[in-house]
Design a protein around this nucleic acid. Sequence first.
DNA 1: CGGGAGATTGACTGATCTCAACCCGGGTGG
DNA 2: CCACCCGGGTTGAGATCAGTCAATCTCCCG
Lengths: 235, 235
Amino acid sequence: MIKPANEPIDLRDFLQKKTVFKHLTESEIDLIPIEDGPDSFKRGEFIYEEGHRINGFYCVVRGIIKIFKTGFDGKDMIIRFAKPGDIMGFRSTITGELACTSTKIIEDAAVCFIPGELVKSFVKSNGEFAMDLLELACNELGDANDYITDIAQKTVRERLAEVLIHLKWSFNLDSENFLQISLTREELANLVGTATESVIRLLSEFKQDKLIELHGRKIKILDEAKLIKIGNMHY
Amino acid sequence: MIKPANEPIDLRDFLQKKTVFKHLTESEIDLIPIEDGPDSFKRGEFIYEEGHRINGFYCVVRGIIKIFKTGFDGKDMIIRFAKPGDIMGFRSTITGELACTSTKIIEDAAVCFIPGELVKSFVKSNGEFAMDLLELACNELGDANDYITDIAQKTVRERLAEVLIHLKWSFNLDSENFLQISLTREELANLVGTATESVIRLLSEFKQDKLIELHGRKIKILDEAKLIKIGNMHY
DNA sequence: CGGGAGATTGACTGATCTCAACCCGGGTGG
DNA sequence: CCACCCGGGTTGAGATCAGTCAATCTCCCG
C-alpha cells in the first residue's frame, strides 16, 4: 500500500505532527501561509544556492534533498540530506547571513516556505518553539562535530562503511534490503569526501567481501554488523 | 599596562556585556549564582570530558580552553577554542545528551557555571535571549560546515595556512606580530587534522618561504596575505 | 545509430603517515 | 655540580593510501 507520490497532503496537519513547528499554538499556525500548498521540484533542480540571500525556512514535505557546499576547486561536499519534516535554510535565516550551502533535489520533492520574520516572531513569543528549534540546531551541531572528527581521522574505507550505515539508519531498507535512497557514485563520493573512483573501487571491494550487493545505483546491505565494525562506529 | 591575571572581575557586569546573556533582564541575571565567583583552572586540567553528563553552561571568564573530540584511535581533534565570553557545553545542555567533547585548559582559566535548568527557563521566558542563543548555535554550525568542507577537500598545507590565519583572527598578534596563543606542535596537528610530524615539516617550509618565523612555540606571522592565498580562503 | 552521462578499470603519482632515531632544554636527585 | 630523564621537537627513510588521468564500457535516449 504505497502512497501515490502526489496525494494531497494536509499541510497544517503535517506541520503540527512532523516538524519543529509542532509546539506552535493554533493561532500561530494560522499565520503560516500554506493555502497555496507546497512548491514542487524535480530531481536536479536547486531550491537555493550558496551565496543567495534566503529569508525563511524551507520545510520539506515530500522527497529527498541534498544540502552541500561547493569547495573552491568545484568539488561538492554533501553536508546532510533533508527529508520530509526537515527544515532547510534555518541557519542563514537565523544568523541573517547568506546561504552557506546549496540545496538540490535528489528525489522529486515538495517544499513549503515559511517567512523568516514569522519564525523569528515565534521564537520570541513561544518559548516551547524556541527550545525545539534550539534543540534542532544543537543536534545538527553534534552531528557536524562527529563528521569533522571522522573525516579528519578515518580512512576512506572506514568512512564509506560508515556512510552506508548512516544511510540505512536515515532512509531504511526496502523489503529486499536495498537502501531506500539512490545516489550516483559521485554523490556518494561527495558524501564520503573522496574521489568518485575511490568510491567505486571500495564498493566493489565490499561486494567481493559479501558486505553489500550492487544493482546499478541500488545498494543492498548484506552485513550491517561487519560494516559497522569496518566503520569503527562505537554505538 | 597589563591586567594582572587574577584581578577580581565584576562577574555580573561581565555576563551582561561580554556574553550571550547580555539580553537577560536584571531580575533574570539575579538568578544566576555568581556570588562565589568563577572556578580557576590551570593549564592541562580538564573541565569536563567526553561522555560526561553535564547540565549547564560553562562560561569562560579568563583564559583559553580547547574543545576537542578523541577519535577511536586515541588521536584528538580540536573542534574550537573557547576564550573569555564564550560558552562551553551548551550543546549537551540543550539536547540533554552526554558531552560529545572534552575541554582542557590551554591557558590558565576562570570559568563560571550556569545551571541548565536556569538557562532553559530563560529560553522560555525571554525571547531575546532565546534568539541570541539560537544565533550562537547557528554561527557555530556554519563554522562546522566550513570546517567539514575544508578538511575533506584541502591539503594539509592549505589547512595549516588557514589555521594560522584563523588563529590570528581569533587571538590577534602581539606588538611583535606573534600569535597570542601558544600551542604545542601536537595541538596544532590536532587542529589541522594531521600528524605532528607533518605540521613540523610544513611549518619549517613556511619559515623557509619567509611566511612565518618560529621561536619555540611562539609563531610570528610575516606574510598574512600569502598565507591566505595558500589557504585558498575566499574572504 | 550516434551521443552523452555515468560507471568502471588500470597505471601512475605523490602527499602524507608511520616508524625510528636523535636532539634539546629543563628539572631532579644523588 | 653533574648525570640522567623526560617531554616535546626535529629529521630521515620507507610504505601506502588515495587522488588524477585516461581509456573503455554500458546504458539510455532521441
